[in-house]
Each structure stands twice: as structure tokens, then as C-alpha cells.
Design a protein around this nucleic acid. Structure first.
Lengths: 219, 219
DNA sequence: TTTTTTAATAATGTCGATATTTTAGTACCG
DNA sequence: CGGTACTAAAATATCGACATTATTAAAAAA
């Protein structure tokens, strides 16, 4: 088994903590605090933080340490807008290139997502649902066959996580998810029908939904 | 003046050295060697290398150190293909959103590029030309107004650098650059005419030119 | 009271040293 | 002669400690 070094382990935890909002946006990340939490020395921490800086989740000021990247309405809009365009690109290529296994994967992921719709009710596990949700969309775009494009897409997905969590919590138990599920059905139908234009339109609209709601939440 | 820490300085040098091919693809990066070259300790080096890992220019194997990412024909194709699509996206948005200052910037950058065409002759400075070339294309796409999209584009441009250098050296003094310059003129005309379709077609084709040539160079 | 200066405190960035692991070389055995 | 096991050397990953720099608190001057 590949025992990864402690920088890699702490990177994983730290990233999750930033994305999940354990560390708030703009918060200072003190070394003493992080050493305590992750039980490692300064150097693995600096390695992990350096990587998060490249991922644009953490900022560094020389001689003044690290802090979580602030969030802003402008960034929210930019990220979601860009995500919508990239996702659209992926969907177009996937429809062009996808084979039988790809289609089967979509149907399977859609089924699993729908089967676990209860996760959205009342006190369900929203993060677990989001994972299935993401797996569903990934099943579609993975057909594009481009590692680079999928990497770009993943990066934007992660950068959007902090905003998305706000949306998920805001919508907990609400009816907004019903619309969401309907959009999924429409998307599956359009993709399997290999209808590029309407698939792209649907997926763009689908991604931009939280963006509109979140604009009101951020101040 | 902002005196950056030594990890940031070494990151810059190391990145340039990798992109410019001073360290060959697949080569092992020994700490003793790097300490010697950049005159810093192990920890700033590990920070810089960690960042290059996120940028996908360097690979890390646990307990086995770092090595430059290998190059491959598959990656070459993927990067250039993806770049062409992203650039096309940027161009479309830029035409939609660009203002007068944007148009002026394009004309200025095109003029400077053409004025320095001599850099391509015989023993000219290809890297200097490439910088002007890139500034020209940046002048066009910056009109898209999306930080995120431009960042994705820059990332792909940098990832393509090692392949592009091969192309530049291969074409040194050849006639391939004449075609290149003609394509630039056509692109400027189409962009200023706000013709989205032909601008996108031109820029996609333009980016993919080196890709075809390089496929033959890589084994 | 407000501002400036100074001292104390805390945090950051870097190096040298050390334990652990990998790699290379060599002898041994089948 | 080829392959395996053992030994020596080198390289990596991490920690503790120290010098430098920022931040806070207190004291003095306006």
C-alpha cells in the first residue's frame, strides 16, 4: 500500500477543511493552530499550504503567513459562468465521442442519484447527495475523452465548492431540489438522444441555477 | 519593495528551467543538485516543487523524490486540442464583450508583433518573438473579461510550453512563420469585424498548426 | 484624549541534523 | 552464467532550533 508522506495527508485534510468551510473565508491560518490540528511539523504544513495557494484556495503574504482566500460575488459569478461554459464544452464532446459503455454509465449514475433522493429530505446527508450528484454529471462529461478538459472542469468544481455548500444548506428541505431532479431527467434524455444543442443549453442553465440564488445570499 | 521569500524565487527559476527544457522530461530532480543550482536549502525547494506538482510540471513519488513530468504524444494532442477550444471560447466572449480600448490593444499588439518579425530570421531571439506573439493573442482574449477563463488558458499555455519550444526550434529560419503571420492578419481582421464564427475557426486552426508538426517530431 | 515611540510578544522562514527508505554494488549460491 | 541476498552509500522526509520579521501592548509625548 502506498503510504503517502505527511504533506500529502495534511494537504487532503486541509483542503477538505477549507472547502467544507471549517476555516472561514479570509481567516488567518496560524501555524501553531494547524500544527495542533493535523499533528505535523511546520514543513509538511508549508508544503501543503503552498499547494493550496496554487489551487487558489489559500493566499500567502510574505512574512505574514497564510489565510483562506476570501469569497466575493464577482468570483462567484465568474466561477459559475466559466463552469457552465466548460461543462457545455465537455458535454458537446462527450455526445460526439461517447460509446455504449458511456451511455450505460450515465443511466446507472442517474438511477443511483434518483434512488437516493431521500438524502435531500429533512435531515439527510447533503454532502452524500452532492457526491452522487457530481458522479452523475461526471458520468456524462467523462465521455469527452480529454484528460486536460476534465482536469480544468474538476478544478472549477472544487473552487465552486465553498459557494455550493452555501446553496446546499440554504436549500435544505426546500422544493428547489425538485426542479433540480427534473432538469436531470431532461438532461439524460437529451444526451442519450445525442442532441448537442439542447443538452448544452440544459446543462448550462442547470449549473447557473445556484449562481442566481447565491447572489442574494452574499450581502 | 516586496521581498518575496526564497521559495517563491526558486519557484520562478525552477519553473522557467523546466519549461525551457533545462531539465529534460522525465529527468530526476535531485535535492543536492537543486540546492547547488539555486543556492537554497531543502525546505524552500520542497515548497517550490510541491507547487510545480500542482501545476503538473513535476511528478512526486513518495520517498523517491521528484522528477520532471514526461512528455507524450497523447498529452501533446490533448493539450493543444483543449487549448484550441478554450481559446475559441475566449475569443467568442471577447468579441461579444470587448470595447474600444480592447480593439486598440489588439491593433497595438499586432503591430508590435509584425514590427519584430526579424526575430524569426536566422539567429533571432525566438523566445522574445514568442513573448510578443503571446502578448498579441492575450490582447485578443483578455476582452472576455473572465479571470477564471483566462487563468485556465494561461495554465494550458504554460503546459504547452515544452512542446512549443520544440516547434519553435524546428521551424527556426523556415517559411512556416510566414503562414503564421498571415494567419495573424486574418485573425485581426475577423476579430475587429466582430465575426465570431470565422474568428473562432481561425484561432482554432492557428493553435493546432504546431500540434500536427510536433506529432512527427515525437517519435 | 490622541498620537507616537518603545518594548514585549508572537509568528514566520530557513537551516542543520537525524531517522527512514531507496538505490547501487558486491558477494554468494543455485 | 544468472539470480538472490546482503551490505554500503546516497537520498528523502521530518523535526527542533534559531534568526528575522510582524503584531500587540504599554508608556511617553503632544
Amino acid at each position: 500500500m502506498p503510504q503517502e508522506n505527511s504533506a500529502a495527508k495534511v494537504l487532503h485534510h486541509l483542503k477538505q477543511d477549507v472547502l467544507a468551510g471549517y476555516f472561514e473565508a479570509g481567516q488567518k491560518l496560524k501555524m501553531s493552530q494547524l500544527k495542533e490540528r493535523y499533528q505535523v511539523g511546520v514543513n509538511p504544513l508549508r508544503e501543503a499550504l503552498s499547494q493550496l495557494v496554487v489551487m487558489q484556495l489559500v493566499q500567502v503574504q510574505d512574512q505574514r503567513g497564510y489565510r483562506v482566500c476570501p469569497v466575493s460575488q464577482a468570483e462567484l459569478l465568474d466561477i459559475y459562468d466559466t463552469r457552465a461554459r466548460i461543462e457545455s464544452l465537455c458535454v458537446g464532446l462527450a455526445i460526439e465521442r461517447g460509446d455504449d459503455a458511456w451511455e450505460a454509465g450515465i443511466v446507472a449514475a442517474a438511477y443511483r442519484l434518483q434512488s437516493n433522493a431521500a438524502l435531500l429530505q429533512g435531515n439527510g446527508d447533503l454532502q452524500a447527495w452532492e457526491q452522487l450528484h457530481q458522479q452523475f454529471h461526471h458520468a456524462i462529461v467523462m465521455g469527452c475523452g480529454s484528460e486536460e478538459l476534465l482536469r480544468v472542469r474538476l478544478h472549477l468544481y472544487e473552487k465552486a465548492s465553498r459557494y455550493r455548500n452555501l446553496w446546499l444548506q440554504h436549500n435544505a428541505g426546500h422544493a428547489a431540489f425538485d426542479v433540480n431532479q427534473m432538469e436531470h431527467e431532461q438532461l439524460v434524455a437529451a444526451v442519450l438522444a445525442r442532441d448537442v444543442t439542447s443538452s448544452q443549453a440544459l446543462v448550462q442553465k442547470h449549473i447557473l441555477v445556484p449562481s442566481r440564488v447565491l447572489q442574494n445570499l452574499l450581502e
